[in-house]
Every structure is written in structure tokens, then in C-alpha cells.
Design a binder for these strands. Sequence first.
DNA 1: ATCGGTGCAAACAATTTGCATTAGA
DNA 2: TCTAATGCAAATTGTTTGCACCGAT
Lengths: 136, 136
Amino acid sequence: MDVAHRLRTEGYRMTPQRQLVWDALRRAERHLSAEEIHEQVVDIVPDFNLASVYRTLTLLGELGLANEVQVGDGRGYWEIAHDDDVVHLHCRVCRRVDHHQGELVAEIRNHLAGHHGFVSEDVDLVVHGVCAACDR
Amino acid sequence: MDVAHRLRTEGYRMTPQRQLVWDALRRAERHLSAEEIHEQVVDIVPDFNLASVYRTLTLLGELGLANEVQVGDGRGYWEIAHDDDVVHLHCRVCRRVDHHQGELVAEIRNHLAGHHGFVSEDVDLVVHGVCAACDR
DNA sequence: ATCGGTGCAAACAATTTGCATTAGA
DNA sequence: TCTAATGCAAATTGTTTGCACCGAT
């Protein structure tokens, strides 16, 4: 996915800072907080500012290129956008978040469809636990 | 459930403030923010302080008598504790949160049990959408 | 040359904490 | 009485905003 091009067609500009935030997300093996992204980028651009992380993440979110996930501590964690219907498996030890794709979320939608007259939009399924690597 | 007694056996004291916070949660038809609880109680105890709401909620949480749920805006919402395995149906219009009890969460646990070696602890399923009452 | 993006500092909002005072048991 | 709980104010933390300058197109 060419983010630079995508940004330009939407009337935004690609900047080194934005590129570096994007790179950090791509490279990440887990969801990153704004703070963590900032720490990575500031090594390369010393006066890089936290506010720019937030502005960039908000923008990427609006363009559907990145997502925020709440894992329960006040802060927000970010990841490259992916299909809506995934389960987040959140390891409380290493804090990594795995994605489990499958029919599960679709089943949840079906299951709820009949009842209550509740119109489901986003299904937000976060399972907290311990991942295989940390479980010993 | 006699909270006063429960508190005492754990070495805590029942105070008018704590009772009123508890009453607010019992009475509530939806999850309440700390601010909302404070607004209710301050009508009865004029100099009742927000910090006491937080301290009381934290305590009730530790005793397993109340739960916090994150619905996605930065703030925390509280409810009387209930069975773990419920789905939270969060209406984005009236902000009410319904509980849907059923085999759903158990199914999710089963579904995940085989895969990944991930050990599930809390299943946190929040479905965002529009409830029957608001859907028209 | 524009006008959008950045750094910086200040503003915010939700929650927490330190401390002197009050009040359950 | 004795120690936990409260009110109050100040401190923290995560995030947002205003503004003057900078730089991508």
C-alpha cells in the first residue's frame, strides 16, 4: 500500500515524520502507543514531537489506514488497519496483541441479529489472557 | 447483597458516601461514569467529592462488587458486578448498555481453546450499535 | 509562492494522590 | 479512642489545540 500516494490524492502531504510513524506501525509486532511510536521516531528526528504522533495517527485513522484499540489501561494502542472482523488476543504478559481471523465475529453478528432488535455495527472482541510464548 | 456487611468483614467501613455511590449503581439503568455518580450524590451530600467516587469505585472493583467497562470514549463506565460471560450491547445513541447473557461467550472460549495455545482469561465483548428503542 | 505540517508550549479532561480533618467501629 | 475515609487542592497522565515558523508541492 502506497501511503504517500494515498495521502496526496486526499489532499495531504507525505512528510518524513508521517513516513516514520507509518514505518513504525508496519514494523511493529504488537500494537503501539503514541508514546512508543514517538520513542522510535525521535531516535531519527531528534526534535520530533508527540503532538505530531497524535495528529498523524488521527489522520491515518480517518483514512482507514490505521486503527486504535483500547486494551483497558487508559491509553490507546495503534495498529495498521485490518479486516473488521478479527478477534484481538491480548497477552497481559508481553502486551502483544494477536489477530485471530475467522467466522467468530460473523457468528456473533448472526447470533445477535435475531434478538433484542439491537442493530450491531462494530463488534469489539478483545480476549485477555496469556499467549503461547509467555505461558510457561 | 449486603455491601455494608461485606465491607466490614474486609476491614473497611460503610459510610453514607459509599452507600450512596452503591445506591446510584443499583438504581442505574445504564452504566455510569464517575462524574454522573457524583452528580447524583452531590444532591444529597452537597460537599461530596469526585475523588471519593473514584476511591469508592476502585474499592468496589477490588471486592468484585462493581465493574468498569470501556466503551471507547476515554472515560470509564461502571456497573454492578455481574456474571463474567455477558455481551455488552452499547447503544451509541442513548449510551445505554444492555447485557446479553447466553452461550455466546462460552462458545468464544471453546472456539479459541483449540487454537494458538492462547490461554483466555477475560473475554471482553462489546458490540456497538443502535438499540431497539433508538432505532427509528 | 502557497498552504498544509511541524515543534513548542499551553490547555484539557479523566483520574490519582498528599494531607489535615472528620467520623465509623 | 483509634484508624480509616473524607474533602480539598495540587499533581499526574494521556491527548488536544493555538500559533508562529518551516517545508512539500
